[in-house]
């Protein structure tokens, strides 16, 4: 088991390195840098001015060297202005002078860089926004998982019955409705003046600090609905399979009541497969979270990611992708390990 986790962690680090390098490479392509220079400097810069702007900030160095600087294994870039003799550089911020600035400032030193859009250190932005998204995710999970499990179990315990048919159709319908469709429908029905049901609010901007039933219901519901269908279908399939097992038949012949069979005998075995699926939902939720945060203008992680990508804020975008990749890889690892714990018949090696 220890060996397995070690191996997986190694693979995870390799994957994270590859992915961040790809993001780094794509965001540092020349047209992207040119756009950055023009938005940061001056829209009417000439080509030579763009190049010197980029040169002075170290953007024109070799991409591997810059990636190393970002990681913190290559000394940070420094530039001496010949006319004024002022030294500027990657590691030199307003808080320190060229003399006191550290040589290395990268992710390994805990320095995630400075956001060009929000004019703040990336780590504070990411920390705050992740908190907001964590809240959204938590509530979405609290709604989604119990709902999906109940639907799946009710549908799967009597396969082919009318309850099964209708609940399965509901599950298919929700998994066919992406967040931007269900969100739009929910807002139109529950928050617009056209239908007159103004129960909830169509924006969740205020929910970051103060989440109430009125401003937080629709975003949570929108995220939860898309995931419900998939988990419910998995639970149903697994439940239906367990209900045909021999030991269920034995229990029934013994005279155990149907409710007891479902709760005491079937449920434990039926929930192994959905567990993995629930864990693997995290990466999917990430996409959903981005859409929902944009749709409801909820300023969380997804909203930040879109702002960073739209404005080519390289360091913020890189940190966003690190977070996203870690979420994906850790959930994969947890789902693998959890599967082994729940199902003793499987050995990892």
């Amino acid at each position: 088991m220890g060996m397995f986790i070690l191996k997986r962690s190694g693979l995870m680090i390799l994957t994270a390195l590859c992915l961040t390098f790809v993001v780094f490479f794509l965001t540092n392509l020349y047209p992207n840098l040119e756009k950055l220079a023009k938005t940061e400097g001056n829209m009417r810069m000439s080509d030579e001015q763009v190049i010197s702007w980029l040169d002075n900030r170290g953007y024109t160095q070799n991409v591997f060297k810059r990636y190393g600087e970002w990681l913190g294994i290559v000394p940070g870039f420094r530039h001496t202005d010949e006319e004024e003799g002022k030294i500027t550089g990657r590691c030199i911020r307003t808080s320190n002078t060229p003399e006191t600035a550290p040589n290395f400032c990268g992710v390994l030193q805990g320095d995630f860089g400075f956001s060009t859009v929000f004019k703040e250190p990336v780590s504070t932005i990411i920390g705050r926004r992740l908190g907001a998204t964590g809240k959204l995710m938590l509530f979405a999970f609290l709604v989604m998982v119990p709902m999906a499990l109940v639907i799946g179990i009710l549908a799967g315990m009597r396969e082919g019955s009318r309850t099964d048919r209708s609940l399965s159709t509901f599950a298919i319908a929700t998994s066919a409705t992406p967040e931007y469709v269900s969100g739009v429908i929910l807002i139109a029905v529950f928050a617009s003046s056209a239908f007159g049901l103004k129960w909830f609010k169509g924006t969740a901007t205020s929910a970051v600090d103060d989440a109430t039933f009125v401003n937080f219901t629709l975003p949570v519901l929108t995220i939860a609905l898309y995931g419900v269908g998939y988990i419910a279908r998995m639970t149903r399939a697994s439940m239906a399979e367990v209900m045909t097992a021999q030991y269920i038949r034995t229990a029934r012949l013994k005279g155990v009541s149907f409710a007891n069979i479902v709760i005491k005998h079937a449920l434990r075995n039926a929930l192994i497969a959905p567990f993995t699926v629930i864990m693997l939902q995290f990466p999917f939720l990430l996409t959903g979270v981005v859409i929902v945060e944009i749709l409801f203008n909820y300023k969380g992680f997804g909203w930040t990611l879109v702002q960073a990508a739209g404005n080519n804020d390289i360091e913020l975008l890189l940190s966003c992708s690190i977070v996203a990749v870690i979420v994906v890889l850790v959930t994969q690892l947890i789902s693998d390990i959890g599967y082994v714990f729940l199902n003793p018949r499987i050995r990892v090696s």
Binding site: L26, A309, C320
Partner: peptide, 27 residues
């Protein structure tokens, strides 16, 4: 398989924001 998993661990939105832009078309 490693390559496939690599692409799959990218959040789809991030990939789209990186791959579908006018600047990328220039390159």
């Amino acid at each position: 398989s490693f390559l496939a998993n690599l692409v799959l661990s990218f959040p789809v939105i991030l990939l789209f924001y990186l791959l579908v832009t006018p600047e990328i078309r220039e390159t």
